[in-house]
Design a protein around this nucleic acid. Structure first.
Lengths: 223, 223
DNA sequence: CGGGTTCTTGACTATCTTCAACGAAAGTGG
DNA sequence: CCACTTTCGTTGAAGATAGTCAAGAACCCG
């Protein structure tokens, strides 16, 4: 999941990724904090997240980290490059995954339809990543955090009357590394939004959006 | 073309993208500053750059801009998302392009091999974009500019004895929007590198790398 | 040649980071 | 189950990196 530039709150097309048809393996269970794969590992399977949340990260030699994406239900993860994984993948919650055999997927001749699905998934991924470039390169801290919350609210928020509540399974530093900020800045920004009654911080890992329109405004710089 | 994290100078595998086999249309010529497509246009063709350089951009309503990528010879551009272009594309120099019919490409059944090539190109694209996330989110201005120059040198630099020279067809603000900086910061950073004799600025749009190792050092933060 | 754009440079400012301390939460072992 | 340790989150103060504003120089293009 990438945080994009929401143009209208709660208006995105349902994230119902077309589900590849031929399941070649049973569901896989991944426990919180366990790894699905590491950077450099050979890619044998792609996975579609069925429930739970995973985190994809890359590291720099000196320890700086980038969170490339969060994998939410419906997302397909594990795209190879030169046959290898280019990120680490760790579960943030108990996660169920549907594996798909890569050899079978990549061989277009054997199953053209499945192959097309894979290509479509890759193209969606590219598009989502392009949105994220704008975020990383051109948005302020407040805009970044607001965009992030909007996306979470839209994607997994549950209605609470006129409010929307959602879980935030990732740590502050996961969020920071995803948005290109520090944990302190993320924390401060959230506090500020809480003080201006735009959000409520139910618990550290649960947020309620009190004023969706105001949050959306922050996300696009109209403050 | 994305600027990645060079691990060893002049050590990247040749950018020889596998060339799709079935050419369905004659080469297309694009003049400097003319557009190949705009964001929102329906995608009918993909293009492989044969010569020249193009620039892919996205805009925010308030005018902020992100340069998503520069398209150099060998690169494939125009990947659709929901059938539409998600960036504008403009030629920075006279450019020759080989078009490929999308309908033909996407229909895996009709030409499995071509379809596979397309998927591979998309996967390479995803990998390159992931590298760029680290750049945008976690690198300093100097590291960004140095990485950018390293990539250009590697990709299109011509040997001049022990130096490497290359053209910089994009403007300072193109570079800035690619790296998530301002034109002033790009300009200042280049000036600084020139003063420390790491590069020479032949002309505004031509750079010579005098001390490749030093430049590579800057790109990964060892300064 | 002249007008407009692009690039460079300077001075100042703001945003975000860094460093540090503290409190809260979660994990561990007796 | 409780005490202890460790990690995580929040907050504050100070500092630095990059941005903004502004002006002049260089470059292009007709």
């Amino acid at each position: 999941m990438y945080v994009t530039i929401p143009t209208e709150y709660a208006n995105t097309k349902p994230q119902s990724q077309s589900v590849p048809v031929a399941r070649l393996s049973a569901e896989k269970l991944l426990h919180t904090k366990s790894h699905l794969f590491f950077e450099g590992d050979r890619v044998d399977w792609l996975y579609q997240v069925k429930s739970g949340v995973v985190r994809l990260t890359r590291l720099l030699e000196d320890g700086r980290r980038a969170v490339i994406a969060f994998g939410y239900p419906g997302d397909i993860i594990g795209f190879p490059s030169n046959g290898n994984h280019h990120t680490d993948c760790e579960a943030l919650t108990e996660t169920r995954l549907q594996p798909y055999s890569l050899t079978h997927l990549e061989d277009g001749a054997s199953d053209p339809e499945l192959h097309s699905e894979l290509l479509q998934a890759a193209l969606r991924e590219i598009s989502a990543m392009q949105d994220h470039f704008m975020m990383l390169g051109r948005k302020t801290a407040t805009e970044k955090v607001a965009s992030f919350l909007c996306t979470l609210a839209e994607r997994v928020g549950e209605d609470l009357g006129c409010y929307k509540q959602f879980a935030v399974p990732m740590s502050r530093s996961d969020i920071a590394d995803f948005l290109g900020l520090t944990t302190e800045t993320v924390s401060r920004t959230l506090t500020q939004m809480r003080k201006s009654k735009i959000i409520a911080i139910e618990s550290v890992h649960t947020i309620v959006v009190m004023r969706p329109t105001a949050l959306l405004g922050l996300s696009s710089g109209q403050n």
